[in-house]
Simulated assay, not measured.
Amino acid sequence: MTTGVTAPGVVRVHVPGRSVRHDLRAIKIVLHREMLRFLNDRTRMVSTLVQPALWLFVLGTGLGTLVSRGPAEGVDFRTFIYPGVIAMTVVTTAMFSAGSIVWDREFGFLREMLVAPVGRASIVIGKCLGGGIVATVQGVIILALAGLVHVPYSPTLILTLLGEMFLASVTITAFGVSIAARMKNMQSFFGIMQMAIMPMIFLSGAMFPLAGLPGWLAFLTKINPLTYAVDPMRHAVFGHLSVSPAAMEALNPGVHWFGWRVSTGVELALVALMGLALLGLAIAQFRRTD
Score class of each variant (00 low, 15 high):
S178E: 08
L161V: 08
A168R: 00
L143G: 12
L159S: 11
A144Y: 00
P155F: 01
V177M: 07
A168W: 09
L145F: 14
H150A: 13
F189K: 04
I125G: 01
L162G: 02
A168K: 00
H150E: 12
G163W: 01
I133E: 06
C128V: 15
G147N: 09
I179S: 09
C128D: 12
F189M: 12
G130P: 05
M186H: 04
L161I: 08
E164P: 00
G126N: 04
Q187H: 12
I158Y: 14
V149P: 03
T156E: 13
I192C: 03
G130N: 11
F190P: 02
M165Q: 12
P152G: 01
Y153V: 07
N185T: 11
P152E: 01
L161A: 10
Q187N: 14
I179W: 09
M183R: 05
I142N: 08
P152I: 04
A168I: 10
G191P: 09
A144W: 00
P152Y: 02
V177W: 05
S154K: 02
F166T: 07
L143F: 05
F166W: 13
V151Y: 12
A180H: 07
I179E: 09
L145M: 15
K184N: 11
K184M: 08
A168E: 05
A146V: 05
K127P: 10
A174W: 05
M183N: 03
I172A: 00
V151W: 13
S178F: 02
V140W: 08
S169P: 10
A181I: 11
I133K: 10
T136D: 11
R182G: 14
A181E: 13
K184H: 11
M183P: 06
I142F: 03
I125L: 13
L129Y: 09
S154T: 07
M186W: 02
T160A: 15
I179L: 14
K127W: 06
Y153P: 10
T171V: 09
L129T: 12
S169C: 05
A174G: 03
T156K: 09
T173L: 02
V151L: 14
V140N: 04
A168T: 14
I158P: 09
I179H: 09
L148I: 08
R182N: 13
Y153S: 08
G130R: 11
